[in-house]
Design a protein around this nucleic acid. Structure first.
Lengths: 253, 253
DNA sequence: CGGTTCCTTGACGCATATCAATCTGTGTGG
DNA sequence: CCACACAGATTGATATGCGTCAAGGAACCG
């Protein structure tokens, strides 16, 4: 792996300073992390780490998309998280204290990744209150997301899972826009939701038949901004702009 | 709620100083947390916090057992974690930064709980590197456990889930003992595993028929200490004493 | 165009849920 | 000490949602 030139802290901060991992950090602190990190571009389908490998880096996505996954005995991969620009992974794994990662990471598209060495990160977290706080908030956030995933799998039927996923996309992507584009291939989304692509297809069809959504290719069109509210939950509600401006229970119809 | 007398740090440390949350803390640091905390006894079935309530305390179990859960629209509760003496909950929730807890907590048996106020905890975490590290490790550990739960739900069949649960009990409870007692009612365990009590019953029956286990009431008897190895995974392996003394793949037959 | 790759649709099977009856153990009151 | 009640666990019969398998169709790309 070729040595890279130093990453410019100012440039980085202006682009990614608001991401959960780096927020509230001074230029000094950010630059210190960057000095020992480096940027790598990976191709579609490339594995950044396999399950069981030693977690040597935190991966921060500067451009592109990654998925984290686990494999069972039969060799099926189950997605844990689907990540885009400004998100990171291996954060939690690094602090689990195992030399064997319970998850693997691979790229679903050509991706530019910032690799922060585990040792550097641990050192900085120990010295730096803000970073420690950021890490704690980050890992807690992942845990929260995994709770949602658990009840997708345990409580909800396939349709509710799909509805909930669409709702999250609606909220995350572009507030107030009643149409958005799916950021991942359907086979990846299905796997993330713990269902088969065939089932995802059938559920979307049902939602279309009921008039909840419409689709053009991978573009989802909502009838209005409230049609998915039935699929909401406490954690999702927090991220929803509607919930601050109005009482969810009083939404139209 | 009546004011309690100060909790004695020395006594507390000798009993719980090795729990993940309090390890490596000095007497001073521990006492500081304890000064603003208090002990409460809750009865079986009592709720310590409901979903949607503001998370005001971290709960640390001094005696008894708690479960954390989530509820869906149809009112079904799904267990997230089953906790015993020396374990804590709400740790992650406190750092999720929401005023609404995504989980509820209730006692499955009369339980003595140490309640640490959120504000105190946050303050101490910010000041104290060791505690921050402990919290980070704790939350990361929960996240790891939730990963196991996700693939129990997503990848594994009911039998694998049950086998894996028994394996964890074998490892956690008393190393080397080939028999142990189930710490929770079967209905609670079933719910935790995302299956129905009837299914749990049937799976245990199958395991008995195959000669993997035997049962006397709620006591589980293993044929030998390796019968459950097939249900192992990377994270569980780390906690297993056998894996350090020998190569798992070379276990007898 | 022709060839991938991804998505959709239909027919069928299986694992687990559901429903209902019975069993087992444990605690209580006469 | 026995009888009764009750909660939890088991068992059997049936239902169903999702997976599996196999065949098409649509979008993409050289």
């Amino acid at each position: 792996m070729a040595m890279q030139k130093k990453i410019d802290g100012n440039e980085f901060i202006s682009e990614f300073g608001h991401s959960l991992l780096f927020e509230h950090l001074s230029f000094q602190e950010t630059q210190e992390i960057l000095n020992d990190s480096f940027i790598k571009t990976v191709y579609e389908g490339e594995y950044l780490i396999h399950e069981g490998d030693e977690p040597s880096y935190l991966f921060f996505i500067m451009e592109g998309a990654l998925i984290t996954y686990r494999t069972n005995d039969s060799g099926d991969e189950v997605s844990i998280r689907l990540l885009g620009r400004g998100e990171s992974c291996m954060d939690a794994v690094i602090f689990m204290g195992s030399t064997q990662s319970p998850i693997g990471v691979k790229a679903t598209t050509p991706t530019v990744v910032l690799k922060i060495p585990t040792v550097i990160l641990k050192k900085c977290v120990y010295k730096n209150h803000e970073l420690a706080n950021n890490m704690l908030n980050t890992v807690a956030k992942y845990y929260g997301e995994s709770l949602v995933q658990i009840d997708n799998l345990a409580i909800k039927g396939a349709k509710e899972s799909v509805g909930h996923y669409l709702l999250r996309q609606f909220i995350d992507n572009n507030e107030r826009q009643t149409s958005f584009v799916l950021k991942f291939k359907k086979i990846v989304i299905a796997n993330y939701l713990g269902i088969k692509p065939e089932t995802l297809s059938r559920m979307l069809k049902e939602l279309k038949k009921e008039g909840t959504i419409d689709m053009r290719g991978d573009k989802v069109i909502l009838k209005d901004e409230f049609v998915l509210c039935d699929f909401c939950d406490v954690l999702t509600k927090k991220a929803c702009a509607n919930s601050v401006s109005m009482d969810c229970s009083k939404r139209p119809t």
